[in-house]
Write a protein that binds this DNA or RNA. Sequence first.
DNA 1: GTAATAGTGTCTATAAGACAGTATCCG
DNA 2: CGGATACTGTCTTATAGACACTATTAC
Lengths: 278, 278
Amino acid sequence: LVTVTIIPTRHRRSIPAEERAFLAQYDPQAFAAVAVTVDVAILTIREDQLSVLLVERADHPYKGYWAVPGGFLREGEDADAAAARELEEETAVRANGAGVHLEQLKTYAAPGRDPRMRIVTVAYLALMPNVSRPHAGGDAAAARFWPVSALGRARAPRIAFDHAQILNDAIERARAKLEYTSLATSFLEAPFTLSDLRHVYEVVWGVELDPANFRRKVLSTPRFVEPLGSREARMAPGRPADLYLAGGVEVLPAPMSRPFQNETSHAPSTSRRRRDEN
Amino acid sequence: LVTVTIIPTRHRRSIPAEERAFLAQYDPQAFAAVAVTVDVAILTIREDQLSVLLVERADHPYKGYWAVPGGFLREGEDADAAAARELEEETAVRANGAGVHLEQLKTYAAPGRDPRMRIVTVAYLALMPNVSRPHAGGDAAAARFWPVSALGRARAPRIAFDHAQILNDAIERARAKLEYTSLATSFLEAPFTLSDLRHVYEVVWGVELDPANFRRKVLSTPRFVEPLGSREARMAPGRPADLYLAGGVEVLPAPMSRPFQNETSHAPSTSRRRRDEN
DNA sequence: GTAATAGTGTCTATAAGACAGTATCCG
DNA sequence: CGGATACTGTCTTATAGACACTATTAC
């Protein structure tokens, strides 16, 4: 049994006497005792694979299992701020930095999802380029990126709590958002080529896209990308590609069309055809 | 100051001795003390207006202001179940009933959003036909549907807490989802005509749609609607329309195209062109 | 009959899919 | 030079917008 002292947060408005009386009679039994955590599913692309950062739990429960990194919501801290803090702690990347995308995903509140006590988890989704060396936090034995394709297969890490569900939701959200936003650029360091950008779509969706039609679509969308006017320094054979920066648009006026899977791709358990819910 | 006793929920797995030791040393100061509520933004269409159910607060804080109906998450209750319970309490409509749609919207956790204590609110979005008489709950002075168009204008109800933000997010989510799902049918009682369905789009989006093109699009989408084979009993002049039921599809293979606003429509404060985030 | 609403057919504009052909690099 | 990758142009196909036309009702 754990005892917690609730300190009311600072009042925003002046409190009339009548209201103050109401506060005094506030019934502490009216609501379930819960703790709130914020977890961040951090996706990136490394070695041609959509990958997610997981931490190996050093303690019980689920010792030795892999979990989505996260932690308790702190006093006076907004959930968005907590997510940005967690992201920075795990990757040493500032959440509001160039190209890093962070958004709320979904909240998980099923009773019994943590055996210790009632825990409500606000999950976030982060998309970022493959830049950072992850480092394990205090209660983690290790931290590493796992290819999404490896999660449902042999030698896959065992996933703690209900985090397999969170991972599925995060991956589906990312796949869906590539269709109608320009968030694919969040996986890339600037500047990038259109082949780089196309490669993001191909890896995340597990399809092959026609380079010519992809180029036409991206360049015809206003402010999807901004031409830099210079070309890459290519080491391999082939014509050097033009370089681009992410344009200002977030929501595309017309979606990218997502073909059926035709590559030898490893779909996760719950993969739907087009946009997911939410 | 309020004191709360946290009773750990029942363990799902057997607990080894090592883990039990860990539980004993659990630090009650590591996390912020919070209460979790579930609020449901209930949207319907009445009198050619997209409308939302609000309750007038009978007590402080925000006495006399209007709020999104909701309540505390109970012991052993999932957030989805709590939302369904709230929806049923306010409208006497079973949440899993025919045509009623209920989905998680977003979680609001900013410190100070409730002056009494730290409250994290998991907001839900409900879409339903105009069938129920709302009735006020225990802490509500009144309950009624407000036209969305009236919220930002003169004689508008004052909105409690940060519920104006929740309302905006709910309305934008609904508008966005009509584009790529068949959820417009959730606003209608079965059976319905294609004019009824088109009317939903026109009211929610504030546009006029070409009846012929709308019909072609809906009927050419597999399992969007199911023809009933009979016709309506029309009282007014005009040819009676064919009747339909909602088909099985939820996510449309190709989105409904949403034109720019051209009607004399009352857009809410934060209205974006196409799909919103999330 | 007229007015009103439902439903059909058709022309056009736009955008996506397929794919041939050209450009520019490395070796 | 060949091989590889980047980029351009064009033909075809699918679909949305516009809108004329027909069908079925109340009055």
